[in-house]
Design a protein around this nucleic acid. Structure first.
Lengths: 211, 211
DNA sequence: GTCTATACGCAGATAGAC
DNA sequence: GTCTATCTGCGTATAGAC
């Protein structure tokens, strides 16, 4: 792949993410994407072939970060550390990929009609891994016995909402844009709800690293 | 308004809610709504004038239930009872109005371009009332000092997710449809997170009704 | 109040020059 | 690899018969 192709594809994906996020797939005009990208419309078709293929490319661009967000969950043995890091990672996605997140959310909301089957499977596999981990901790008495699935739904919803329903949140906070501090407050609150609500305990033999 | 008009309008609103929820505004064809309603397409235009007006009618159909959900919050003096009832009421909306909820969510997600200004104002007023109530409880030491806005965002997100991201939840639970029990488990978990996470206390002079 | 048949505009896609 | 000019189909909306 040529340099110029790679560069233009990146520009188009970026522009497309913003426009698809703002208007939704059907209401998005390829002309709008082209305009925002600073390119003539046929270039979009030259690089991506069709609106639908471009849309899939946008969906795929968010897949890796999304799957990577669960790494902290597996990296930490300690449930307090793992859950704290997971919530932070999930919020970071809302903060760092606000447009792609919304596109993804909109896709899920309408039953994922365009989401490739392999992505669905990878996400499902991740869900199973996470619930299993939570259930292990419960069996070890490191947290209260709750339904692991519903706990995950609550974490997903309350972290994604900062991207998906950004408008509503900005209205309530009376702010033009959410800043770093808002996300930190969100992280603190959600972490408090999860750790406090489920009485999550640190590992007895936790290695308390001094930073 | 004639009997027949009222009846047909209700049928059309019902069908439109389902179709708008499934496909989103732009991707929805009036022909699909007509088909689901069992009426010829021009009837839609006869009763509602345009696709946009029909869409607004669907949005307005969910407004009253949505505003009514905060009544428990104000009806109960006791924070434990109030929050428990509020979470239950919010989940009931996801359960009882799954389609209209999704339409509303989709609208908010895209910056509420079609939502009438008076509805926005009423929702904002409600938000202010709720945060004030929470802040009062905190001042009275009935719960930990947390950011009231962020707590509301978490409650909204984790209850609405059962309508908005119903597909994702059904996938994770491996179920065709969510049943009464799923919503009860959700209510229990979310209530536990909120009450436990914020250490919400009952009023000292709580009137403990024996049921 | 109901419905068949049709007009019209918009946006996805492309032909073909450069 | 780039872009102007154009084609075409689909979906909103309506005219007009019943």
């Amino acid at each position: 792949m040529s340099q110029i192709r790679a560069k233009n594809e990146a520009i188009i994906i970026r522009a497309a993410s913003r426009v698809f996020a703002e208007y939704g797939y059907a209401a998005t005009k390829t002309a709008t994407i082209a305009e925002l990208a600073g390119l003539p419309k046929p270039n979009i078709y030259y690089y991506f072939g069709s609106k639908a293929k471009l849309y899939r490319a946008v969906l795929e661009s968010i897949t890796e970060p999304l799957l990577a967000a669960s790494e902290p969950f597996l990296a930490h043995q300690d449930p307090v550390q793992a859950l704290t890091a997971y919530i932070k990672a999930k919020l970071a996605i809302s903060q760092d990929y606000p447009f792609a997140s919304k596109v993804f959310a909109s896709e899920i909301m309408h039953g994922a009609p365009h989401l490739p089957a392999d992505i669905i499977e990878r996400l499902q596999g991740q869900t199973r891994t996470l619930t299993q981990r939570l259930n292990d901790w419960m069996a070890q008495q490191l947290m209260l016995e709750v339904d692991a699935n519903h706990l995950l739904f609550a974490i997903w919803a309350s972290t994604q909402t900062y991207a998906d329903f950004n408008w509503q949140i900005r209205m309530a906070l009376d702010k033009k844009e959410l800043d770093e501090q808002d996300f930190e407050q969100a992280a603190q609150l959600i972490t408090q709800l999860v750790l406090g609500g489920c009485q999550v305990q640190s590992l007895p033999n936790a290695n308390c690293e001094i930073k």
